[in-house]
Design a protein around this nucleic acid. Sequence first.
DNA 1: GACTTTTGCTAAAACGCTTGAACAACGCCT
DNA 2: AGGCGTTGTTCAAGCGTTTTAGCAAAAGTC
Lengths: 359, 359
Amino acid sequence: MISQEKNSGNAAAPIVHAAVGRAHPVTLREVAELAGVSTATVSLVINKKKNARIADETRQRVTEAIAQLGYRPNAMAKTLVSGTSKFIGLVADGVATTPFAGQIIHGAQDEAWKHGYALLIANTEGNQDLEKDAIAMMLEYKVRGILYSTWFHRPTDIPDTLREADFVLVNCFSPDAGAARAVVPDEAQGGQSATEILLRGGHRRIAFINTTTPAPAKDGRLQGYKDALEAAGIPFDPDLVLEAYPDQEGGYGATQDLLELGVGAVYCYNDRMAMGLYDGLRENGLSIPEDIAVVGFDNQEVIAAHLRPPLSTVSLPHYELGAAGVRMLLGLDAAPLESAVKIACPAVERDSVAVHSPA
Amino acid sequence: MISQEKNSGNAAAPIVHAAVGRAHPVTLREVAELAGVSTATVSLVINKKKNARIADETRQRVTEAIAQLGYRPNAMAKTLVSGTSKFIGLVADGVATTPFAGQIIHGAQDEAWKHGYALLIANTEGNQDLEKDAIAMMLEYKVRGILYSTWFHRPTDIPDTLREADFVLVNCFSPDAGAARAVVPDEAQGGQSATEILLRGGHRRIAFINTTTPAPAKDGRLQGYKDALEAAGIPFDPDLVLEAYPDQEGGYGATQDLLELGVGAVYCYNDRMAMGLYDGLRENGLSIPEDIAVVGFDNQEVIAAHLRPPLSTVSLPHYELGAAGVRMLLGLDAAPLESAVKIACPAVERDSVAVHSPA
DNA sequence: GACTTTTGCTAAAACGCTTGAACAACGCCT
DNA sequence: AGGCGTTGTTCAAGCGTTTTAGCAAAAGTC
């Protein structure tokens, strides 16, 4: 339904967007002709060149012609002239697949957009050929740079072709330090924050169920646990550290061992383990947080926020990783080459740890 | 670490990719000069034009020159000539934000890639201005077409600018039927499948906890429930249909009403409600599926697969929606204008419904 | 041997835009 | 009146491709 405004008393013809309908796209030249000027002039007014001297009257005429024809600049032509596009590529081994790592895309997209860039994404699902093709394509489209990201924090090899572009590693890093700019989550700080939630809850004997799978997260989260204890003046007791496969089954399965420890608080390697632990604890007639306090790690919304009681945890800053990656690529953030930049994992306190009532 | 192959006996010079290092990008002309031919010839061999007559020897020389220089075609220049790029735009009101709807991106990306297209995404978070800018940007980059998607199935208005492009609505549809091509989930079929899981489990009295929020899903899922009952020869009993807010709290809160119905099976509007219901049921000492069978809808992996017992549910085909959208856009799938194409919601059977032991 | 075909390749225009140099017209100063 | 600085605008080259028409040489044809 097209609403036609009544514009009596207005001499201007009703504006008709000629471009609507997809005939032949309107070009600069056509605008120039309508306005009775050269294409150079039109270009000048469009780009608001500061040292260009254009009469107000002319500027006006051009602006009108643009509106009347529904002109849209051809970004390809622009790019061809300038040499680089306003694209930032994002190649991911699976962030689009995994629910919460998708936030990397989101963060990158928002930040890129903020600076006038658009995101070109490619999900490679870990397939090397696909990855190569994706990077090639981005290179061909003259992207400003490429964000190379992984769905979980890990070391990664840098594909050769990637080096042809300006790039930043996101959520991963190169084993040979100094080889590339990178941004990763601060696992240790996160582990410390998680432990501190429990500490603040008044707990002194805190178990940690770590993962069995080797990963930067495994070491970092354990380190954070130790750091927090040390800061609180509590000696580290290796017996309080269990290990299990990092999923719901793993958490569930660790219940018995945990109970034998006789602790009042547990910090789980991730939310899924915590979820399993909830079930195990419940089956043993224990309630959270009264009998035992629990914190997780990752802040997988769908799990953590909807468990009963809602789980206190620590956020994996995916959104921030994406955003920081873009800023680093664009040279807006400092980007040390020696080591990856670490992004904080903020604590998210919910109800799985009782507030401390100092005895 | 650069490994230098020993190539004694091989007259060819070691291939050096001149492009690595980001000096001045290699152009067609340079390749032509190295090969001692014209740019036209190089273009011809690169694009493998079938009716182009090129001597094998020449083709060979060109190929070598390309490899030697590490030449990469400039896609912008190509696009400028051809008029349209190999991009497909995806504007989303939040699919990147919501975990599982991110699969729309994934599906679209895979399918687009399969046909040689790259995905250009823009998350508008429902912001109209952002949306307009995003579409404008896509138009300027001469995208092949635009996928306009929403994070949950709903009617939507079609922004004016969108009409300047070839477009398809994904997971949403226009209230004025026939206004646009669209692809949406088949809620009714999904509801029917969900109900059938319970029916196959031997249940005859099946409750349905619908949502209180108006949406295509509300009507469709109810319709499917009725259809399934009818097909099974069971009269529809309105008393068995409850309503609650579609989240975990809603499901939990519906427990009492549900128990008063005295049913042995429940079909929940979504997985989150089912999750809440699990808690409510458990508190009442009821076990799933022995005392009561439950099915959900949506198949939110993180919830459904990890509940105890794992929840039988019905999948919202986000991946397929994205893929189908691309195919429709590219004219690979038929695209009726009268109504949206419906994508099946496949049942995912887990353990929340006992297998039927016919008495 | 004079012709037509075929084969292999190139010249050059076009795609839509940007930009530095050039230019015409004007007012101002001496 | 001559020179000069300003102002407003255009010229034309160039960005890296694709593609059509056309040309020269080689190969067939009778």
